[in-house]
Computed example of a mutant assay.
Amino acid sequence: MSDLPTFVQGLPKAELHLHIEGSLEPELMFELARRNRLDLPFRSVEEVRAAYAFGNLQDFLDIYYQGAGVLRTEEDFKDLALAYFRRVAADGCRHVELFFDPQTHTDRGIPFAVVADGLLAGMAEAETSLGVGSGLILCYLRHLDEDAAFATLRMAEPYLDRILGVGLDSSEVGHPPSKFARVFRASRERGLKLVAHAGEEGPPEYVWEALDVLGVDRIDHGNRALEDPKLVERLVADGMTLTVCPLSNLKLCVVDDLAEHPLKRMLGLGLKATLNSDDPAYFGGYLGRNWIATADALGLTKAELVTLAKNSFTGSFLPPETVQARLAEIDAYASSSAYSQ
């Protein structure tokens, strides 16, 4: 009989909520700092890991932006992407829709092209060498103003044929989705898909705004939607995908115990939830670790794991024929697996 880790590793899946800057492991941080002749405020890898104790989202963001400062060249961004793809390929991942934060880099003088070209090169190599396809989602930083987001959209113009969509991340509380209504409308007019972080630390009203003001195609996180039965009803009726990140929620104290995570409840309510890693270098686990730890803590059944895998593809921005092929692959794997939880 197959055990849980073996079953999860072999289950075809996609990752829809991954911040590439959040996959920067301390070892690579030190390597890039040496390469770029930069001084870090940490003396060792162990000291960096000890700093990864967060009481809330802002505690994490402070060190996240500090760590991103070692990324300077196309080679750095390509190496960052490939390090992530190697890990996720081992977790049975077939497709990633990868977030990046250009303002984190352009605001410190790194040209948009350096960031985009490096990431796109890493993505292309990962598809060829690892068999993991991917798409790029540009995220606007919500703690900055909408004019800064518009400036980023203008920088991205030469790359729009290689960018899937735009998202909204960074400090949620006090920065409602409606703050970015105009730039999201402009992004849609350019043919981009729309996603937004909402309902992680922010209230259910932020999820409503993401739906009705921004017109998003997908909600990132969405945990606090469960506080509003009407909102749950709306999300179910719309078939809206939620990109849920359990180990992130635990690390940032959104939940106190993984056994209390709402993912199983979401599935029971008919919500189209998916499992993702968010910022895996900081939150204690990549995609496979999120699947295994969450399944173990919540007692997820084989049928629920298969549903999560299918949701990851039907909630993606892949072409319909590719989605159907992946769903058939999941069915074939599940029917041949001895796993019977």
Rank of each mutant, 00 (worst) to 15 (best):
H105G: 03
D279L: 04
L226C: 15
Y339Q: 06
G270D: 02
R108T: 14
A338F: 13
E209A: 15
L82Y: 08
E172K: 05
Y52N: 01
S171D: 02
S277Q: 07
E146P: 15
R86M: 06
V213T: 14
T294I: 07
L214G: 08
L235F: 03
K272C: 09
R224D: 00
E200G: 04
R43C: 05
P41L: 08
N311K: 02
D147T: 13
A281H: 00
W291A: 11
D331N: 02
L269S: 04
K302I: 13
A334Y: 03
I219R: 01
A325S: 11
L4V: 12
R185N: 08
H17G: 03
Y282A: 09
R224V: 08
V183A: 03
V254C: 04
L267R: 06
A90Q: 13
P12E: 02
L252H: 01
E127N: 09
A81F: 15
D101G: 08
D279E: 08
V207T: 11
G10F: 06
L242N: 02
P229S: 11
T6G: 06
F7C: 11
T322R: 08
P262Q: 01
P246Q: 01
T307Q: 05
E329I: 09
H17P: 05
L250F: 13
A297P: 00
G131Q: 08
K230P: 00
L141V: 09
I137N: 05
L160C: 10
V45L: 10
D107C: 14
E209T: 10
V236D: 02
D62E: 14
C139Y: 00
R185F: 06
Q341N: 11
L214P: 04
M123F: 01
R326Q: 08
P203Y: 12
L308Q: 03
T6V: 08
G191K: 12
L138N: 01
I63T: 02
G22H: 03
K193I: 10
Y84D: 01
A126Y: 04
R162V: 08
V323G: 01
S340Y: 09
R190D: 01
E47K: 15
D331E: 10
E200H: 09
L144H: 10
P176F: 07
A281G: 11
L4E: 04
R218N: 05
R49L: 15
A149G: 09
G315I: 09
H105I: 14
P262L: 06
D3R: 12
F112G: 06
D3Q: 15
D91Y: 00
L24G: 03
E233P: 05
E21K: 04
E189V: 07
C253Q: 14
K78W: 01
V132G: 05
L164A: 12
A124D: 10
L130S: 01
S134I: 13
G22P: 02
L211F: 09
G268S: 10
S178G: 15
R190N: 06
L130V: 13
C253H: 13
A198R: 00
A156P: 00
L300K: 10
A237K: 06
R289D: 07
Y339V: 04
P280G: 10
G174S: 08
A237C: 07
R37V: 07
L308I: 11
G174I: 13
G55F: 06
Y52P: 00
L141D: 02
L308H: 01
P246T: 12
E15N: 11
G239S: 02
Y64M: 03
V48W: 00
F184D: 00
N223C: 06
T73F: 14
V173L: 05
L160R: 12
T128W: 07
M155S: 12
E321R: 15
